[in-house]
């Protein structure tokens, strides 16, 4: 697998050594996973929700929001109103 590209998607920076180590570990793991090919899943619907719930709704009623101070409390960088982040390069 292309560890570097995948890490890029996940916004994780890896050094060469890490890329090599992860590459070989994950290739082992993925080749173990190949056993799934043995299972005949023709016509089987993929299961994404194990509990067969449906149509779970909430009424459109406003409830109090968090206080702004609580919203900003955990922020690594902020001013009185906003959370600050490094420059976002457009695009």
């Amino acid at each position: 697998m292309d560890v570097k590209y995948t890490a890029e998607l996940a916004k994780i920076r890896l050094n060469k050594e890490q890329v090599d180590k992860l590459g070989s570990e994950l290739n082992d793991i993925l080749s173990f996973f190949k056993n799934l090919k043995e299972v005949d899943t023709k016509g089987v619907e993929p299961l994404s929700h194990v509990l067969a719930l449906k149509n779970v709704f909430r009424d459109d009623i406003v409830k109090p929001s968090l206080k702004k101070a609580d919203v900003l409390k955990n922020a690594p960088q902020k001013d009185t109103h906003y959370i600050k982040v490094p420059r976002v390069i457009k695009g």
């Binding site: 799934l36 090919k37 299972v39 899943t41 089987v44 619907e45 993929p46 299961l47 994404s48 194990v50």
Partner: peptide
């Protein structure tokens, strides 16, 4: 991912 979800259905 999708294959695993199908096998999940089989196991369930």
């Amino acid at each position: 991912y999708l294959k695993a979800q199908k096998v999940r259905a089989v196991i369930a």
